[in-house]
């Protein structure tokens, strides 16, 4: 399959801070590729370099075969970029914003209406409302419409669902899937682990390095440890005591319970139960659980 975005050994420093450390990856055409990582991992820096807004210190990157430094003009015509911060004109109406971006890309709303129709039709009833007065979810829809209005081949979405409610987030991912079906390559970043499962492939990124690139299923499969969810009446003390349990690889809070992992054979369910009753915990439950992306991420982070 043809390559849409290709990055080789890309580095970027801000003074002493290494934002990106020699990262390499490639995204296929029509792929929905996710960058998963905490704040400060380097996601925005990477997106800005790919969107030709920032120059890398070393390494190369191409978008649809165009170099991000030499052919930046060509890239700007074929990409849609949605920065993490809402960056449309708050004092212009929904329609004025869309018209503005259509115009500076040399097109009109009518020309590409079918592309944005599905998204834009949801906010069209409010088209005379100022963008600043929209709700978070509607703002995202407008921003996506503006990023799509010139029919881009590649979409860069930097944390598009941050600060958006659960329903709108789900709708948003539905829309991304439909856009993907139209052959648009989409590169999206998110700090939400649960969204990773919705991507074709994900890259786990931390401190400027990519720790793993794989399909969400493979990421989970490659989880090397045994994982249990542990409940107790006193969750705070539980976390505290589990950390002292010899043989535990990692312990962290997961919702209302604790996730405990250890290497196969080092510990057993019975051993944990035994240890907890000795330390005086009540209502203890220990159940094996299938790891999700977040568990994998935590595991990788510890290794790093």
């Amino acid at each position: 399959m043809a390559v849409s975005v290709d990055v080789q050994n890309l580095s970027k420093n801000y003074g002493d801070v290494e934002a990106l450390k020699e990262i390499s990856f490639s995204v296929k055409k029509g792929e929905l590729f996710g960058f998963i990582g905490p704040d400060g991992a380097g996601k925005t820096t990477l997106f800005r370099i790919l969107a030709t807004l920032l120059l890398a210190d070393s390494g190369t990157a191409t978008v649809e075969g165009f170099d991000v430094v030499k052919d930046y003009r060509k890239i700007r015509k074929i990409i849609g970029y949605m920065p993490g911060r809402f960056s449309l004109y708050q004092d212009l109406s929904v329609e004025e914003n869309l018209t503005f971006f259509a115009t500076i890309f040399g097109t009109t709303i009518e020309e590409n209406y079918n592309l944005v129709k599905e998204i834009y039709s949801q906010i069209e009833p409010f088209k005379t409302r100022k963008a600043g007065k929209l709700s978070g979810g509607m703002k995202q829809k407008l921003a996506l419409s503006c990023a799509l209005i010139h029919k881009p081949e590649v979409l860069f979405l930097d944390e598009p669902t941050t600060g958006v409610d659960a329903v709108s987030r789900q709708e948003f991912w539905e829309m991304l899937k439909r856009l993907k079906a139209q052959g648009i390559s989409i590169i999206v970043s998110t700090p939400y682990m649960d969204e990773a499962g919705l991507c074709d492939r994900v890259a786990l990124i931390q401190d400027g390095s990519i720790m793993q690139i794989s399909t969400p299923e493979k990421v989970v499969e490659s989880y090397p440890l045994e994982l249990y969810t542990v409940d107790s009446a006193d969750i705070y003390r539980l976390l505290h005591d589990l950390k002292k349990l010899p043989g535990a690889a990692s312990v962290f809070a997961f919702g209302q319970s604790a996730h405990l992992s250890f290497q196969k054979g080092k510990l057993s369910r019975e051993g944990v139960l035994d240890y907890l009753s000795k330390t005086g915990h009540k209502e203890v439950q220990v159940k094996p659980v299938k790891p999700n992306i977040e568990d994998c991420f935590m595991e990788l982070m510890q290794k790093g």
């Binding site: 969107a51 700007r76 015509k77 809402f86 960056s87 971006f101």
Partner: peptide
């Protein structure tokens, strides 16, 4: 300040 320059800068303008 309001971040719109980012969006403008990625356009071919």
């Amino acid at each position: 300040e309001i971040g719109t320059i980012e969006q403008i800068n990625v356009t071919p303008i």
